[in-house]
Design a protein around this nucleic acid. Structure first.
Length: 433
RNA sequence: GGAAGCGUGGCAGAGUGGUUGAAUGCACCGGUCUUGAAAACCGGCAACGUCGCAAGGCGUUCGUGAGUUCGAAUCUCACCGCUUCCGCCA
């Protein structure tokens, strides 16, 4: 959520920021609404103050009456006076509530403003490559894609996944299922042992407040899987561990010297992929369910930009240890997600596609999520102020599996296990049919 | 699923319709004293919103939402959560 004070005081700055995202916004309706709010709120509060003062007087008189003084007439007079406020006050309060809800609905749907360092551009073609690591492997044979490799090894079975659940689901077996698990554990171990993160296990179903807090609601409900309960309430399947883990601190005031909080969490992620029909239909690149190891940081506001560089580095460390070639890309303003102030994508080399594909997305949200969650920090003696939040994939496990299969494939269709994973596979050096 | 109880400020814990945004203690901050520290003593210390150049004023908030009332932490209803006992169970 943007700071509503910023909208009031510097609407041009907000409009300019949103324009960088390709959003032409007319703030005139907001300003009309805001003027009305101001008038109604001021009036309402004056009436409330009057009511409170009169009620207080009645209370005092009742006290004197109890001691035997004859003040009944005075009490009657005040009761009549305060009764005159009744309906008008109630009408004003209701009107104010409607106005505040409208303002809130408007502001809740505005995305974050891009940081000044974010490249200009409307879509992914304007994203800026920041760096590259590793060289794509040279094959003296035609490399297969992960679908052919996995099926050849008897470890990927998309036909049966369709039978069980439908399209965009994966069934893994044997060595590939094990490799998948090894990847997740390797990532968790690296982040906890080497990067200072605390491992977290969190709910896979969350309430609407949590989805609002990180910015998935109210605007992107169609991207989520929803679970209706018999009592009429609903839960949502998490599209990323970002949601439950960031919401750990929702509604809390943290001591600034407890920060940063660094969490790592391995969960399945569930996405409806509405609107991506026909995109990446082959293989396990784009699934309704996939595993991801997520890094989340809750930091003091001054430190978030340094934290973004560090967090991105933590994700990069996994790719390097696995020996997977990748590049780091700064997303342009028009390609960033709703809540982000800046995002780096890490893209891994996929030989079969002869290109780099997203495997991690690392973002600084500044105070955008913190304002939605009402998460603040306080310095000794100071006023609470919103924290900054960050997160990044470290990494998407399914896509990492794809990258390992494709980059480590051999001419005979077997897969060499990257050295760092061998301890997790009982020393196994190669996956064969 | 059955029964009972409980949700108050960073924590503990008073408060059952009227100058209560809330006693008291702890924690925390500032000061006095002390060579220094501790102890003792004095003072301060909720959040959010809003008006205002500011000083400051006003409003809202005692799990959440609705209701009764001139007035609600206190009364009513619903919901959420927690505790204990019984039952069931991975």
């Amino acid at each position: 959520m943007l700071d509503i004070q910023l909208l009031r005081n510097q609407p041009d700055l907000v409009a300019a920021g949103l324009a960088r995202r390709g959003i032409a916004i007319d703030l005139a309706p907001f300003e009309v609404l805001e003027a009305e709010r101001k008038a109604v709120q001021t009036q309402t509060q004056e009436m409330q103050a009057k009511r409170n003062a009169l009620s207080k007087q009645i209370g005092m008189l009742k006290g004197r009456q109890a001691k035997g003084e004859d003040v009944a007439a005075e009490i009657d007079r005040l009761m009549t006076e305060v009764a005159g406020l009744g309906d008008a006050l109630k009408a004003n309060e209701e009107k104010l509530a409607v106005l505040l809800a409208e303002l809130d609905a408007f502001v809740s749907r505005l995305p974050n403003l891009p940081h000044e360092s974010v490249p200009e551009g409307r879509d992914e073609t304007a994203n800026l490559e920041v760096s590259r690591w590793g060289a794509p492997p040279a094959f003296d044979f035609a490399p297969k894609d992960h679908v052919d490799l996995g099926e050849g090894l008897g470890g990927l079975d998309f036909e049966r996944a369709v039978k069980i659940a439908g399209s965009r689901f994966t069934l893994m077996k044997g060595g590939i299922a094990r490799l998948h698990r090894a990847l997740a554990q390797f990532m968790l171990d690296t982040h906890t042992r080497e990067h200072g993160y605390t491992e977290v296990y969190a709910p896979y179903l969350v309430n609407p407040d949590s989805m609002f807090g990180t910015g998935q609601l109210p605007k992107f409900e169609e991207d989520l899987f929803r679970v209706e309960r018999s009592d009429g309430t609903r839960l949502y399947l998490i599209p990323t561990a970002e949601v439950p883990v960031t919401n750990i601190v929702r509604g809390e005031i943290l001591e600034v010297d407890q920060l940063p909080l660094k969490f790592v969490c391995h969960t399945p992620c569930f996405r409806s992929e509405a609107g991506s029909y026909g995109k990446d239909t082959r293989g396990m690149i784009r699934q309704h369910q996939f595993d991801k190891v997520e890094l989340v940081q809750i930091v003091a506001p001054e430190t978030s930009w340094q934290a973004l560089e560090e967090l991105t580095g933590h994700a990069e460390a996994i790719l390097r240890k696995l020996g997977l070639p990748y590049r780091k890309v700064a997303l342009c303003a028009g390609d960033m997600g709703f809540s982000a102030a800046k995002t780096y994508d890490l893209e891994v080399w996929l030989p079969a596609q002869n290109t780099y594909r997203e495997i991690s997305s690392c973002s600084n949200f500044e105070a955008f999520q913190a304002r939605r969650m009402q998460t603040r920090c306080r310095e000794k003696g100071g006023k609470p102020r919103p924290v900054h939040t960050l997160n990044g994939s470290g990494l998407a496990v399914g896509r990492t599996l794809v990258a390992v299969l494709e980059n480590y494939q051999q001419a005979d269709g077997s897969i060499v296990v990257p050295e760092v994973l061998r301890p997790y596979l009982g020393g196994q050096e190669r996956l064969t049919a």
